[in-house]
Design a protein around this nucleic acid. Sequence first.
DNA 1: AACTGAAATGTCACTAATGTCACATTTAAA
DNA 2: TTTAAATGTGACATTAGTGACATTTCAGTT
Lengths: 186, 186
Amino acid sequence: MKTLTSGEIASYCDVNLRTVIRWIENGKLKGFKLPGRGNNRVLVEDFIEFLERHDMPIPASLKGDATPSILIVDDEMPVAKSIQRVARRAGFDSYIATGGFQAGIMLSQYEPKVMTLDLSMPGMDGYSVIDFTREQSKYKDLKIVVISALDDISLERALEIGADASLQKPFSNHDLTMVLEQFMSM
Amino acid sequence: MKTLTSGEIASYCDVNLRTVIRWIENGKLKGFKLPGRGNNRVLVEDFIEFLERHDMPIPASLKGDATPSILIVDDEMPVAKSIQRVARRAGFDSYIATGGFQAGIMLSQYEPKVMTLDLSMPGMDGYSVIDFTREQSKYKDLKIVVISALDDISLERALEIGADASLQKPFSNHDLTMVLEQFMSM
DNA sequence: AACTGAAATGTCACTAATGTCACATTTAAA
DNA sequence: TTTAAATGTGACATTAGTGACATTTCAGTT
């Protein structure tokens, strides 16, 4: 049950915060108040309904919640396709990136909920990818699933620096499904 | 999702506010109304499209940042810094990416006017980067400057698949300056 | 050149919506 | 816990929308 603050709505609508509060007060926008001093919260669905009712544009980042997506970063196409099949069954829209540059652009463009990452791609340091991603608050909610043929220690290190789950190659579809379904509901 | 008020558009177009409202009413300019009394808002992209459609001049302040930026993709920090110095003197804001993944994210995030690209970065295929970038209409205006120690034939191939300029390592600051100043004014 | 009429644009006054500012207080992050 | 960032509020300043009407623009005609 995702909610928005008055400030977030203000920036979505490119309008002053004061104005948003007035909309809520007038009943034009449905919302509720927190117990504290009455800070406002608006359900995403109410906000979208509000936008539609007034023919206002709906930010892409709000629409995206309908079907969460996953970015599969792997240079071996067969592996990527196999992950894609599992992801699709778990209910994700999926995208495949076979190189670091593509991965970066697609991550930024599609803002997926989950990213699977092959640690041992030629010429790409998976650790620095995790590092760099975790440094950016924009991706704080992104779930990173590390997939690699490397040993346990490497996988553990990945978890330490910010990955959310790890799978050792070859992985079973069942294990991957478990992980994805867990993230799907978060 | 930046928007403009009818008043802002009026002053951009040096036209009366009343006229802007009529444009929106007639459907000549796409816009939407705020819930209050129906104050008009126009998405910047719609406004630009409107200006282009009527061959009207586009204010520089709408085209993005006041100061254009450059993304420097190079794994050798000293080289990157050196490019950065030249770029700064040519009037660019600059960002450095030392890996493909970072480069992708930064390209998408900062939308620079120019990207310099080291063709021979370990484990990153510069050609596929150019290819992938050129496939996306979003980056049709991005200027790609290829920098490499490879031979002429490699540089020519880069130009063929979509790079806008090439420099052979070691390059002179003067040559780089020439290239950047040319792109600065485009 | 001058005339003409229709369409587009500008003007004005008035009202209502929206923005601004300073400050208290809460919320979230470190 | 400490600190920084958001939020709510009231009073007040700006800006936008509207209708009626004046003015300009512009192509076609004399």
